Simulated assay, not measured.
Amino acid sequence: MKILRYILFPVMPFYYLITWLRNLLYDLGIKKSKSYPFPVICVGNLSVGGTGKTPMIEYLIGVLKDDFKVATLSRGYKRKTKGFQLGDDQASAEIIGDEPFQFYNKFKDEVLVAVDADRQNGIQQLQNLPNAPEVILLDDAYQHRKVKAGFNILLTTYQTPYFSDWVLPTGNLREPRRGVNRADIIVVTKCPENLSDIDKKKVLKRINSKENQDVFFSRIVYSNMLISAEKTMAVNMLRSFTLVTGIANPKPLVCFFNDKNLKFEHLNFKDHHEFSQEDINVFSTKEVIVTTEKDFARLKCYPGLKNKLFYLPITVAFDDEPRLCAIVKAMVNSYEK
């Protein structure tokens, strides 16, 4: 794969030019963006996948849901439906996509979960509802510039920061690095647990944020308990198991289990993998399966996996969470209800 990316290096300037020109047309107002008189918060990245958007959206839900009517709006990647879909009792990964389905499973009684590839239409459909939301969280919409969010949160991982990357196809960036200028908050995600102040300063120097931008560092926090459809189990009770992942970057999860000296095999699938019946048949032969929350939502419907399938919950911890919370709430409260 790396060799192919080097071979495609001559293509990179053309991709750079196209994405740069597209953004310029929006910046100049030649291509139109629509803004809204209520809070629309966009969570996204410059790179392709794996930066921690899902836990960031869940964090924002936790911050806002007790004081505001909140909705999430995603594209619904790899779903088998088209147009606007609102999560309801019939929701599944096939109908609304795996990550929105995770939101729905966790927050269905507290927030609205919707999908629409056309974010403008999705926002309009949400506003037409009798219980219209007061705040909309846009999941993975940083490049969807037809919508001008009131607040942009850009995520970049500590291991592969945008400032050390290249645009596609040689690198992983969806657009040139200067796209960071649209961000109100920049979050460096998946940091080591004991990241030193010196290392933070090195990253801050490379980011070189503007006066109107705030930068935060975050890390993944793994639970010590595994959850299944019917029970829980302490991680340290595991003897041997099969780890099944269908996410962009499973390395931190693998490192978590390795650090605990646990014995496991890893069945690694690409992000948003559509599990086949052949996959399920293989899983059915395993004694204990541990997976991610996103993959659990898709796999739990198979009866043969019911008593052996667990997921490991994760949360995100910030270096200065009270300040982040205050900034988000202040932005939302700046709009008249």
Results as ranks from 00 to 15, higher is better:
residue 49 G to A: 13
residue 45 N to Y: 05
residue 30 I to E: 10
residue 36 Y to R: 09
residue 73 L to G: 00
residue 69 K to Y: 08
residue 43 V to R: 00
residue 75 R to T: 05
residue 49 G to N: 09
residue 65 K to Y: 11
residue 38 F to M: 13
residue 62 G to L: 08
residue 37 P to A: 14
residue 40 V to M: 07
residue 59 Y to M: 04
residue 77 Y to N: 06
residue 55 P to G: 12
residue 62 G to I: 03
residue 54 T to G: 06
residue 60 L to Y: 04
residue 52 G to F: 04
residue 62 G to C: 08
residue 44 G to H: 02
residue 44 G to F: 03
residue 62 G to E: 10
residue 31 K to H: 11
residue 76 G to M: 04
residue 53 K to R: 13
residue 49 G to D: 10
residue 57 I to Y: 01
residue 72 T to N: 08
residue 43 V to Q: 02
residue 41 I to N: 00
residue 31 K to N: 14
residue 75 R to V: 06
residue 74 S to F: 00
residue 77 Y to K: 06
residue 46 L to E: 02
residue 76 G to V: 03
residue 56 M to T: 14
residue 77 Y to W: 11
residue 46 L to N: 03
residue 42 C to T: 12
residue 37 P to E: 15
residue 74 S to I: 03
residue 49 G to Q: 10
residue 31 K to E: 13
residue 45 N to W: 02
residue 29 G to P: 06
residue 37 P to R: 13
residue 66 D to F: 05
residue 53 K to V: 03
residue 47 S to H: 02
residue 33 S to G: 15
residue 57 I to E: 00
residue 56 M to C: 15
residue 66 D to S: 15
residue 45 N to T: 15
residue 60 L to R: 02
residue 51 T to C: 10
residue 40 V to Y: 01
residue 75 R to H: 12
residue 73 L to T: 01
residue 65 K to Q: 14
residue 29 G to V: 11
residue 37 P to I: 09
residue 68 F to N: 09
residue 63 V to F: 08
residue 44 G to D: 02
residue 71 A to V: 11
residue 42 C to H: 01
residue 76 G to K: 01
residue 67 D to C: 12
residue 64 L to C: 11
residue 65 K to F: 07
residue 36 Y to G: 07
residue 59 Y to V: 02
residue 60 L to E: 00
residue 46 L to F: 08
residue 49 G to H: 08
residue 43 V to W: 00
residue 53 K to F: 06
residue 51 T to H: 08
residue 51 T to I: 13
residue 45 N to Q: 12
residue 68 F to H: 15
residue 66 D to E: 15
residue 67 D to R: 13
residue 32 K to G: 09
residue 50 G to A: 13
residue 52 G to N: 07
residue 58 E to A: 05
residue 45 N to K: 06
residue 47 S to D: 08
residue 52 G to P: 03
residue 54 T to C: 08
residue 43 V to L: 14
residue 34 K to N: 13
residue 49 G to C: 12
residue 69 K to V: 13
residue 69 K to M: 11
residue 75 R to E: 07
residue 58 E to C: 07
residue 62 G to P: 01
residue 35 S to Y: 11
residue 74 S to W: 00
residue 71 A to I: 10
residue 34 K to A: 11
residue 62 G to R: 06
residue 68 F to G: 04
residue 71 A to L: 07
residue 38 F to P: 00
residue 70 V to L: 05
residue 60 L to H: 04
residue 36 Y to E: 10
residue 76 G to Q: 02
residue 47 S to I: 12
residue 38 F to T: 09
residue 38 F to G: 03
residue 66 D to G: 14
residue 73 L to K: 00
residue 32 K to V: 14
residue 52 G to I: 10
residue 42 C to F: 01
residue 30 I to L: 15
residue 48 V to K: 07
residue 36 Y to C: 12
residue 69 K to P: 02
residue 75 R to M: 09
residue 66 D to R: 12
residue 75 R to K: 14
residue 63 V to C: 12
residue 54 T to M: 05
residue 77 Y to Q: 06
residue 47 S to F: 01
residue 50 G to H: 11
residue 70 V to F: 04
residue 72 T to Y: 05
residue 58 E to T: 08
residue 70 V to D: 02
residue 32 K to N: 11
residue 65 K to G: 05
residue 35 S to M: 11
residue 53 K to M: 09
residue 39 P to T: 13
residue 62 G to S: 13
